[in-house]
Amino acid sequence: MTQNEVPIIELKNINKHFGDLHVLKDISLKVNKGEVVVIIGPSGSGKSTLCRTINRLETIDSGQILLEGVPIPEEGRQLAELRSKIGMVFQAFNLFSHMTIIDNMTLAPVDVLKMPRREAREEAMKLLERVGVADQAKKVPAQLSGGQQQRAAIARALAMHPKVMLFDEPTSALDPEMIGEVLNVMTELASDGMTMLIVTHEMNFARHVADRVIFMDSGSIVEQADPEAFFSNPQTERAKIFLESITRN
């Protein structure tokens, strides 16, 4: 990656408060094309909030968020259009419970991208194939296991051809035996060159898949490093304590 290339996502001095609580403190961050950035940190450190500011599911009090060098719009059609270019995967899957999986997949491509229904369906089936839940296409979300739902949710986001994928703790709501299947899909996605920003507690995944690890604590970015360096030799005291507390469990 070259130095003068425009980053896909750039955050400049982001601040956010929830009432008296200063949840994001002057955060600056760049994510380049093809990069996989993993954000870790204790719960309540603001990492989820940070992830959600990028498509304005959370508003910010000050600072700037740029997508490919352009500030993200604040409202209206432009905001919707921006969001359609950013894929998002939630902790609780958030598949539409009244629709079958295939309808979940085609809703936004047809309604937002104005794709012909047939084309959208064909592509959706290919994506479901890719994440391994094609045989569940006609079922409604409640009939699927958590792992299957999350894989379908990833496929739903991919159907919009996003420039970047945001993952907000994608495995935190899953039973242990299902975490692996979701992480596998994400690993594959990373090796295909997708730009990804991932908030997670899965340290092994971070270590092996991330290009860069960001450690957040109480609203600030405390440390940024490549995963090997971070996990084997954290520079800050807070990161050391955090990593120790995790390995102990």
Binding site: R56, L57, T59, P73, E74, E75, G76, L79
Partner: peptide, 8 residues
């Protein structure tokens, strides 16, 4: 509704 922008 989400947090309204200035125009909204």
């Amino acid at each position: 509704y989400e947090e309204p922008g200035p125009k909204t």
